[in-house]
C-alpha cells in the first residue's frame, strides 16, 4: 500500500523554518508510529521535490509563505489553486509550485495533495522564528494529526 508522505519544507533562516517546526510538532504527536506515514524535513529541495513525492497515496506539504497576511495565518491550497502554475524561470527560483507543476506534467502527482502555507514575517539567517510562526506550526500540527486520525483511525 502506498504511503502518506508529509514534507516540511524550509531552511535554517528565521521564519523559513515554519514547515520544519510543523513537522517537529507533528512528530511530537506520535503520528509517525502509524503504518505508511512518512515524515521528512526538506531543506530547499528545488526540483528534487518532484522525485520525493513519487509513489505517495497522499502528499501533505507545509511551507512558509509571504502573501501579505497576518504573520501566523495558515492557508490551505487545493490542486485548483496551482494547477495552471508554470513559471520555470530558473533553478534559483525553482520552488514548490514548479515542482508540483513538473510532477503534474510527468503524471506522477499523488492522488491526494494538501499544500499548507504559514504566513511568515522574514527569513533572516541567524534569527530564531517568530513566536506567531511557532504557534501556527503547533496549530497546524494538531490539525494534521486530527486529519490523519480521521482518515485512518489508529484504533
Amino acid at each position: 500500500m502506498k504511503p502518506i508522505r508529509i514534507l516540511g519544507i524550509g531552511s535554517p533562516s528565521g521564519d523559513d523554518q515554519a514547515g520544519w517546526l510543523t513537522v517537529d510538532a507533528l512528530l511530537g504527536t506520535g503520528v509517525q508510529a502509524r503504518d505508511r506515514v512518512i515524515i521528512d524535513k526538506l531543506d530547499r529541495p528545488g526540483a528534487s521535490l518532484t522525485t520525493q513525492m513519487e509513489d505517495a497515496a497522499w502528499l501533505i506539504l507545509i511551507d512558509a509563505m509571504q502573501a501579505g497576511g497576518d504573520v501566523g495565518r495558515i492557508r490551505h491550497f487545493g490542486q485548483q489553486d496551482w494547477m495552471q502554475y508554470g513559471q520555470g524561470l530558473s533553478s534559483h527560483g525553482f520552488g514548490v509550485l514548479d515542482a508540483l507543476a513538473l510532477a503534474c506534467a510527468l503524471g506522477s502527482l499523488p492522488p491526494r495533495i494538501d499544500l499548507y502555507g504559514i504566513e511568515i514575517a522574514s527569513a533572516d539567517p541567524g534569527l530564531p522564528p517568530d513566536n506567531r510562526v511557532r504557534e501556527a506550526a503547533q496549530r497546524l500540527a494538531r490539525h494534521l494529526a486530527a486529519e490523519l486520525e480521521q482518515a485512518a483511525p489508529s484504533h
Binding site: 513559471q87 510527468l106 506522477s108
Partner: peptide
Amino acid sequence: NNAIELAKIAPDEVRRGLR
C-alpha cells in the same frame, strides 16, 4: 518554453534526469 513543457513530450528522459 520550460522543463514542464519538455516533461510532457519526453517524460522518461526528464524523470531520468531528475533521478
